[in-house]
Amino acid sequence: MFTLSEIGLYLCFSILVGGLLLQIVPANHRPTLVLSKKYLLWAVAGIGVLSFMPVLRVILFFISDPNFNPWLLTTSVLFSFEIGQAWWVSLALSVVLFIMILRTNQAGRSSQEIVVVKLVVAFGLVLALGWSSHAASYFEWRGFFAHTAHFLAMVVWLGILLVTGWFSKGMENWSTFLAWFHPLAITCVLITTSAGIILTLDISPEYLNGWILSYGQALLIKHLLLIPLLLFGFINGFLLKKRLKELPNFNPLGWFRAESVFVLAIFGVTAFMGQQETPHNVAATLKMAEPSPLFTYLYQGVLDRNPSLSLAVNGNSAILFAAALMFAAMVVLAFWKKMPPYISVVMGILFTVTGYLALMLSIR
């Protein structure tokens, strides 16, 4: 339940931020959008409701103890815990933004100044999410800034991608759209990567040992999924512009939607990570939590409670690494050979699976 709610929360933020940003872009610099205000209203309502789920999780965690009074516990979490206070801010900002969007016309159009104000309120929602994050609770301002930068860059990049891929029509203005979106996407990738490295070093300093735990397994899979996503970014950023010059009537929507498959997969894995024990100290965490079932199934050695894992390529893992590289190349080659987008999606999934197995079979 909580994993699904986080996936929904990420989607709501992406649709909201992506939709609002595209509203301030001149019509001749983006494809024609069919994103009516009802989708933005649902996104804002979703943020207000779904951002409460982490608060509910904390309440349910403590309420199982009979020594706690349920009413006092609930009010304490809501008004004394930072996660509860952050939710009140999110709820208030969601109500304000909901009313602002509701007052726009049916097509969702409003003045540029009003859209900018909506974006400022949406940015406040991102700040509230960063305030309630694991990183902020463990590492205070450093964690807050890293998580906020990571999440904001992600929803700007992926939000525009999702909204354009699923709420646009026609083949006009794609070249002018890519001319500004591609540099923006590269900037967001650099920010996301830099902030992600900081978060990884803070939350999972024993990166390799962290693979023993479910959080570390999910983090590894997320990092592997980023590679096909970046390959699709290369296709949609560089190769697509050349294809549009050669074939002005070429419809790129299928490739944007194919890239969104990996966006959703990363959202799902990130949401799963949010429900797992963070591996600040793997040996200490193993005293309270079981190793990942995936890890214990694939690991060929004897697991020590004070682990010190390393990687050593062997015959089987070398074959899998070679296969992973081939599948990664096929993601781009499929576009080059004018194959359907789903072929690249399948190649990206196969890369993720073979890359994961290659790494797991290299552990010693």
Rank of each mutant, 00 (worst) to 15 (best):
F123Y: 11
D202V: 13
M154Y: 08
P279A: 05
T176I: 01
G254T: 02
V269I: 12
V95F: 10
T352S: 15
A271E: 02
A107F: 08
I83T: 00
S317N: 06
A358N: 10
K242W: 13
Y356I: 14
P26Y: 10
H182N: 15
A122Q: 03
L91R: 02
P248V: 05
T75P: 01
W166Q: 03
R57Y: 10
R30E: 04
H223L: 10
A358K: 06
K337T: 14
L16D: 04
L199M: 15
A27V: 13
H280A: 07
M347L: 14
I15H: 02
G8N: 10
M1Y: 12
I114E: 09
F52C: 00
F123P: 02
I235C: 03
I47H: 07
G274K: 00
Y39V: 07
A323E: 03
A27T: 14
G46V: 13
R243W: 09
V95D: 04
M330Y: 05
A45L: 14
S175E: 08
M53W: 09
L208F: 09
L224I: 15
A179N: 11
A122F: 03
K169G: 07
V302I: 12
F62V: 07
F167Q: 08
P31S: 09
L16W: 05
L20A: 03
E277L: 11
L40C: 07
I191E: 06
A122P: 02
P291N: 07
V156Y: 00
F335K: 04
S5M: 07
L102Y: 15
W87F: 10
L213R: 05
A135W: 07
V269C: 06
L158T: 13
Y215V: 03
L11A: 08
M171Q: 14
A218P: 04
M53F: 13
T104M: 11
F52V: 00
M326H: 11
V96Q: 02
P66K: 06
L50V: 08
V302P: 02
L73W: 05
F335Q: 01
L357I: 13
M288Y: 15
L190S: 12
L119G: 00
G216I: 06
I203E: 05
L190I: 15
V49G: 01
L16A: 11
V126S: 06
E113Y: 12
M53K: 04
F335N: 04
V25Q: 02
T278E: 09
L35V: 01
P31F: 02
L4K: 04
I47Y: 04
F177R: 04
V156R: 01
L253T: 12
V49N: 01
N236G: 06
A324N: 06
I198L: 15
K338G: 12
L40N: 03
T75I: 13
A185Q: 06
G301N: 08
I198M: 15
L303I: 11
